[in-house]
Simulated scan of single mutants.
Amino acid sequence: MPSSFDDLLEHNRAFAETFALQGFDGVARAGVAMVTCMDSRIDPLGMIGLVPGDAKILRNPGGRATERTLVALVLGVNLLGVKRIMLVQHTRCAMASKSERELLMDISEAAGVDASWLDLGAIEQQRLSIVEDVHRVRSHPLIGERAEVGGFLYDVDTGLLEQVA
């Protein structure tokens, strides 16, 4: 029976033919973790010259240091070889383009269901939110001085990273 995933499974079979990470222990070989947005214009490994196996990549709307993201960073720093953490937001991000209320109205309209109960985490002041997230990660008792933490803004039109914090 045909599936809407058939094309992706076909590409996966081709990928598996040259798969080179079997037996890999999951430690970040370059000692890097990156928190970034789920935006499809972002190639997290490519933008910093790394390849699969080098870094832990955590993605969410807006690239924020959420509670669950902090859990992943704690694991990365304490068990998986992470020594540097990059918090990367980007230009022209939907999460920073409208207010929480406006985004919720857009979702409600698109879904045809009231979404006002949802907490999206819209970003009102992007550079300030990067600074705040860097502080949040640096001050976590299970991360603290165990890793260097930097905040960055990625320009989706030039491919360049700017260090903000």
Rank of each mutant, 00 (worst) to 15 (best):
A55P: 01
L21F: 11
M38R: 01
T18Y: 08
W117N: 12
A33L: 05
A165K: 09
L120R: 03
V51M: 07
S129L: 14
S99P: 07
M95N: 02
H140T: 10
R13T: 13
M95I: 08
D133R: 05
E132S: 11
V113G: 00
L58Q: 05
E162N: 00
K83R: 15
P61E: 02
L21I: 05
S108M: 02
L50R: 06
D133I: 12
R59N: 00
G121F: 10
V156I: 15
S97I: 12
R13P: 03
M34N: 03
D39R: 01
V137L: 07
P44S: 03
M38C: 13
V51I: 12
M86A: 11
M105P: 00
L120D: 07
A28N: 04
Q22I: 12
L103E: 06
R127H: 13
L160G: 04
V156H: 04
P61T: 07
I85M: 10
D43C: 00
V164L: 07
F152D: 08
V51L: 11
L103N: 08
L8R: 06
A110C: 05
M1K: 12
N60P: 01
D39G: 01
L70M: 09
M47F: 09
E145I: 12
K83Q: 15
S108F: 03
V113H: 08
V131A: 14
I107T: 02
E100A: 00
H11M: 14
L161I: 04
F5T: 15
L153I: 12
A147Y: 09
T69G: 07
V149G: 12
L160C: 05
A122Y: 08
D6V: 13
A30M: 07
H135W: 14
R29I: 01
E148H: 09
A65I: 08
V35P: 02
V134C: 12
G144S: 15
A28Q: 15
L50D: 03
A65H: 01
D157G: 10
L21R: 08
R138N: 02
T158E: 03
Q125I: 08
M38P: 03
V32G: 00
L161M: 11
M47Y: 06
A165T: 05
D119E: 15
C93R: 01
G151W: 11
D6I: 10
F152A: 09
Y154L: 10
M47I: 15
D119P: 02
F152E: 11
Q126L: 14
P141V: 09
Y154M: 09
D54V: 09
A72S: 15
I130S: 02
L103P: 02
V77K: 00
M1R: 02
P44L: 09
A147W: 06
C37H: 05
A14C: 02
K56I: 11
H11G: 13
